[in-house]
Design a protein around this nucleic acid. Structure first.
Length: 256
DNA sequence: AAAGTTCTCAACCGCGACGAG
DNA sequence: GCTCGTCGCGGTTGAGAACTT
């Protein structure tokens, strides 16, 4: 992988020495001007490569290692809200990069959300956990079942994903008692609206055991995400409703 | 122990947005 | 308005690790 293309910039994995050079250069001269950086620093890397390496690996306060349950929940819910807007999602996770979130989604969460129908035992090696997994992910999913794979947020799917973090039976029962349908409202797909919703969805306010429980505690409105694969409008409303007027973030007006 | 298979994630690529000249 | 350079984003790739047969 590590070769030069027609004498072009070096490619492949970064070495420790290269990391050191890049880090020192950025600490001295600051971020930005990546094309200039790649020339002046002596690194035989392209500007894009330098930028990516800094952003995803060398930048201070990068958090590495396992995603916590809270982070997982947040990613799932934010993805439900925004789709593949990785940078936006990562922006709500201190120390996590868009690339990391994207990889995590593709390798862990995306599979997990497809586990409901698949029912094949697999092992999460890093956590030493087992979970039901459709081994071939979305490929075989379509042939096994023509319907869209359900998203994480339905009560049934939720149960598969929160194993060990809460008493599912109790919460599910409570959930079913007071489920509220939220209608999709036309005309709320613009970015401003979405970003207000995201702004409202602050990682720091995320203290209760699971977002699901948080919803249960916040207001009299108890909600489930819709089964649709991507319903940003619906989820925006969910967030507003979930945070309600009693919550801290609810004191601000996010309405257009 | 070896070969084959699957998984993970760092890095690359292409594209669009944006600002400067 | 056009071109050029830079930046940031999301999708994809592939090497190496981990696991299975």
């Amino acid at each position: 992988m590590e070769q030069k293309k027609n004498g072009g910039p070096k490619r492949g994995l970064w070495k420790a020495e290269e990391d050191m050079i890049l880090k020192k250069y950025v600490e001295t001269h600051g971020e930005g001007n990546w094309a200039t950086l790649s020339k002046r620093s002596g690194l035989k890397r392209g500007g894009k490569s330098c930028r990516l390496r800094w952003k995803n690996y060398l930048r201070p306060n990068i958090k590495r290692g396992e995603m916590s349950n809270q982070e997982q929940d947040l990613i799932i819910r934010m993805h439900n809200l925004l789709g593949n807007r990785w940078s936006l999602i990562a922006g709500r996770l201190p120390g996590r990069t868009d690339n990391e979130v994207k990889n995590y989604w593709n390798t862990h969460l995306n599979k997990k959300t497809c586990t409901v129908l698949g029912k094949r035992k697999s092992i999460d090696h890093k956590n030493n956990n087992t979970f039901d997994q459709n081994r071939d992910g979305d490929k075989s999913m379509s042939s096994a079942d023509n319907s869209e794979p359900p998203l994480i947020s339905s009560p049934e799917t939720k149960a598969d994903n929160d194993q060990g973090s809460m008493d599912l039976d109790d919460d599910e029962k409570r959930m079913k008692q007071v489920t509220k349908e939220v209608d999709i409202v036309d005309g709320c797909t613009d970015n401003t609206w979405m970003e207000r919703a995201v702004h409202c969805f602050n990682y720091d306010d995320y203290e209760l055991e699971t977002p699901f429980m948080m919803m249960m505690n916040l207001s009299s409105s108890n909600l489930v995400f819709h089964e649709e694969p991507f319903t940003p409008c619906l989820d925006s409303f969910l967030l507003f409703d979930a945070f309600g007027t009693d919550s801290e973030v609810g004191n601000q007006s996010f309405l257009p």
